[in-house]
Design a protein around this nucleic acid. Structure first.
Lengths: 344, 344
DNA sequence: GGTTGAATTTTACGCGCGTAAAATTTTGAT
DNA sequence: ATCAAAATTTTACGCGCGTAAAATTCAACC
């Protein structure tokens, strides 16, 4: 690397023996210049370690090639994993992803959308808070930025949605639990801030009825995203109060189940399928750590890769194509896969 | 909100009855203008929903008020929690934090630093990969951007370091384990990619010797950041091979311990302090979910808030002050706090 | 070698805002 | 009302690059 400091594209164009507009074109799309020209530029980049000023660059560009990713709560391993995969896919597709977490706060979500909007992103992948979201903020954002929603659907927001088919996934695990033992109660946060709660509740109720069982829902008190804590505290209470008519509990998500398992442990109740077990506990979502609970958690896994890939693919299709945007809002649902482990 | 679209600061200054330079000054520092002026501007912001173009803004600013946060692996709840707290502190201090995750890959870490450098951040809070880091990339970055390292120290990199006193924290839990039962073996990944591993190993060895016990380290095979998996697989192997001379195991971090607990469960070994227990297992770091393992994990907690606060405070002090940068690289170590739960 | 379309260069303008310096106004206290 | 200090306005220039259109050069083909 030469020690001459190249500061501007003008200087860089000079040392690479090209004109600035050509270099500018390269930096927007490396394939838009002749291979020989490209080689010369990339050679010079190596030598002088030049990078164009991103602020000056994006100021007038129509397409920034920046992609926004907004998740409701990044400290939740579920969304951390999602973000990680999506980020990688975006980079590989030649975009610059930027991840925002709303940390469970609707205000911050709205603020994130405003910040993101100011960055003039080419597109965005959004997992909104859902029920708690500031709908106006999302409408306002998606009006200007091509967006695909994932994991958490909101009617009429964005160009499409990719997520799990809750009916299928809940139906599958409910059927499994019923057929392999007693029908499950459903354990869910009362004022759960996370998405998909309502949809899961309905799916549970429906599939129980279909199988000829009476649905039984136990609501866990507690606010916020501290699901393990909520599951633990409410679990202790519900177990002591004998709130569950059967020996089987289906938790709304794996984190709730982790807390519930801790409660059962504390109460001296052995969890599992075996003879000596007092309780069967199942979760939903297959969080990264659910394989390692004691006992390992029976749950429904989402195909992170499939959902992430499809989301990114749909989004890029929105502005990559010459074709006009589809008039229809596309909804793509993936099936969950039953993961039978020792807990139920 | 009026429906007139204000696009430029010129127009915005006009409708607020001020000059553009004054408005510009406000957007850099809201307190740099008279309260009455500020009120007028903020009133107009409400009415017209105007936001300056961030690219044009940052193009010529000396101080962008952007802060970079780089963590080695965001899908690890430990770093997710750290990032969350730091992000909040930065926002409250009037900065725009941007979080990057290196996803455990040294190449991506270097790439993140380059991307961040291109954003001309006012400063950065870095938790480098450590042993695996591309040192040159960090040297290059910190030469241009005032940086504070946290959690993971690297000699001579950055203006300072804030983290845990591994000697104290490991020493404390080793002493506790020794005094309350048998002395612990240390269970750690063989090629662990995460920071602080070497430092913890040394602290363990030293404190064991100090207490008159023979150190015994069991290395877990396995690559990457899948610590639960590594802890589980290596745990199974080590338990079956009877690799542990005593009934007590201190794991290098809580995620490893979670995997190890799963292994013990699978092997039918009851973990805890009680009479019927075959094994005592302790962790380190107090991950957010360690309270909910079965049994709950005895560990050493880091004071996330204190470390995060101190890091941000140090960093902001670097460019907030008129005073020149301190010539000395500051190292601030916090004590860990022993968290005794049921597992040991 | 001539042709042709594609790639590149030249030229010129604009983006939206930062910033500096000097002129002017406002403020808060006397 | 007076006055100095602080805040604001005016004026003017520059940042680094995008982009458009016309002129020129290039590459590949028959």
């Amino acid at each position: 690397m030469s020690d001459t400091k190249i500061k501007t594209m003008e200087e860089f164009a000079a040392v690479s023996g090209l004109s600035r507009p050509t270099v500018s074109k390269y930096f927007f799309d490396a394939n838009s210049v002749r291979p020989k020209t490209r080689a010369r530029i990339e050679d010079a980049i190596e030598r002088y370690d030049y990078r164009p000023n991103i602020y000056a660059m994006n100021q007038n560009r129509r397409l920034t090639r920046t992609l926004g990713i907004v998740v409701p709560f990044l400290a939740d391993p579920f969304f951390a994993e999602f973000a990680r995969i999506i980020e990688r896919l975006c980079i590989d597709a030649g975009f610059r992803p930027i991840v925002f977490s709303s940390h469970g706060e609707p205000d911050l979500e709205a603020e994130n959308l405003k910040s993101l909007l100011a960055m003039k992103p080419s597109g965005a992948l959004l997992a909104p808070l859902g029920r708690l979201s500031d709908r106006a903020a999302l409408v306002n954002f998606t009006a200007e930025v091509p967006s695909i929603l994932f994991d958490s659907n909101m009617d009429g927001i964005g160009e499409g949605f990719v997520g799990l088919d809750n009916n299928q996934s809940i139906g599958t695990i409910v059927r499994y639990l019923c057929e392999s033992g007693q029908p499950p109660s459903f354990f869910e946060g009362k004022m759960a801030p996370n998405p998909n709660v309502q949809s899961k509740l309905e799916a549970y109720t429906q599939s129980m009825k279909q199988l000829g069982h009476e649905p039984h829902i136990v609501y866990a008190e507690g606010e916020g995203w501290d699901f393990e804590s909520i599951g633990y505290n409410a679990g202790i209470r519900a177990l002591q109060a004998r709130d569950f008519p059967t020996n089987t509990i289906l938790c709304g998500n794996d984190r709730l189940a982790v807390g519930f398992l801790a409660a059962a442990y504390e109460e001296g109740l052995r969890v599992g399928r075996g003879d000596g077990c007092a309780l069967r506990v199942a979760g939903h979502d297959d969080h990264p750590f659910s394989r390692f609970t004691c006992p390992p958690l029976t749950t429904v896994s989402q195909d992170f890769d499939a959902i992430a890939s499809k989301s990114v693919e749909l989004l890029i299709g929105l502005f990559d194509d010459r074709t006009e945007r589809p008039t229809e809002r596309q909804t793509t649902l993936f099936d969950g896969r039953l993961v039978i482990r020792a807990s139920a």
